[in-house]
């Protein structure tokens, strides 16, 4: 059932996937017309996500942690003032981080740097684009700034990643311009159950769509409240048309490998690393686990002696009562 090795094909650059998914599609030559090269084209925005595949993106709160993450083999870091578990603990309004802190991290590491903005807060996004981050996460982990609208992401040169808990949310975010998708999971809990639920929901609906006739797809698109063409493309590819990562509750190498088996292209780890007993060791182990997710002997080795995992919060036991409530219900 592993789909982790399927190629990602973005809608704007139909690639020669015909031989893999059973449909025979001629390889279109992407129009070179226009001449002048494009920065911030959808191909360039999704392209960076494709380079992150098979990798681990780690939340870091300062330069020290960013260096530990890079040394451990993170393919990118998410710079934020408070990791999700601390946002839950502190309560109040969670906002974009201080640009100064983000710039310090950008100056300290060679790998791509991402940062979070509140859902719908396009001015925070403009600020992060001006700062020069490599990717923006329009994130439910922060307090929502707009309870109806997400950011119109096509107009930005910087690419966006957005969370989803089902196929409808994923395709709506892509329609708005997201160049990368992640599960929402339940951030800051260290409980992988919600990420599993969301990834399974996405894949189950993709498999359903893949078996549908065109007229059924029109009706399904209406049910999901998504554009027909994106659903059609998803059904053809048998996967999301952009790179899709796991996020929200990954705490161990085994969690990371589980998400890869469920069809994720890579993994975000938030609180799971820097709230654990030995962050550097755990970070290295999760990186190894994402590459070798299909090799249980290797997983046994990298799960051995890596210190205490974060204590975490059981989502089933705490539910809406947990500090910060269920973040995954924000922004549908």
């Amino acid at each position: 059932m592993s789909l982790g090795s399927e190629p990602t094909i973005v809608p704007s650059s139909a690639a020669p996937n015909g031989s893999l998914n059973g449909t025979s599609t001629p390889v279109p030559q992407r129009a070179a017309a226009g001449g002048a090269g494009g920065a911030g084209t959808f191909g360039v925005k999704t392209g960076l996500a494709q380079m992150l595949k098979g990798g681990v993106i780690m939340d870091v709160m300062n330069v020290e942690q960013a260096k530990i993450a890079e040394e451990a083999g993170a393919c990118a870091v998410m710079a934020l003032e408070r990791i999700p578990a601390n946002i839950r603990r502190d309560g109040g309004v969670a906002r974009m981080s201080d640009p100064g802190m983000i710039k310090e991290i950008m100056a300290a590491v060679s790998i791509p740097v991402m940062a979070k903005v509140r859902i719908g807060h396009f001015v925070e996004a403009q600020i992060l684009q001006a700062v020069g981050v490599d990717y923006i996460d329009e994130s439910e982990v922060l307090t929502m700034a707009d309870d109806k609208h997400h950011i119109g992401k096509h107009v930005f040169k910087v690419p966006f990643v957005c969370g989803c808990k089902n196929l409808g949310e994923a395709l709506r975010r892509i329609s708005e311009g997201a160049a990368m998708i992640r599960t929402k999971g339940e951030a800051g809990t260290g409980d992988v159950v919600e990420a599993v639920k969301h990834q399974r929901a996405v894949m189950a609906d993709i498999r359903k769509a893949a078996a549908m006739s065109d007229d059924e797809l029109y009706a399904f698109a209406k049910d999901l409240a998504v554009p027909y063409h994106l659903l059609k493309e998803t059904a053809r590819l048998k996967r999301l048309p952009v790179v899709s990562f796991a996020a929200g509750g990954v705490a161990t190498p085994a969690d990371a490998a589980l998400m890869m088996h469920l069809g994720c292209d890579g993994v975000f780890v938030g609180s799971g690393i820097f709230l654990s007993g030995d962050p550097a060791k755990r970070a290295r182990a999760i990186v190894q686990a994402v590459t070798h997710y299909n090799n249980p002997a290797m997983l046994a080795e990298c799960s051995t002696g890596i210190g205490e995992a974060m204590v975490g919060i059981s989502v089933a036991a705490e539910g809406e009562r947990m500090l910060g409530g269920k973040m995954s219900n924000r922004g549908i």
Binding site: G37, G40, L48, G132, V133, D134
Partner: peptide
């Protein structure tokens, strides 16, 4: 960085 990424 990513903002300078391009197609040509």
């Amino acid at each position: 960085n990513q903002l300078e990424s391009f197609e040509a």
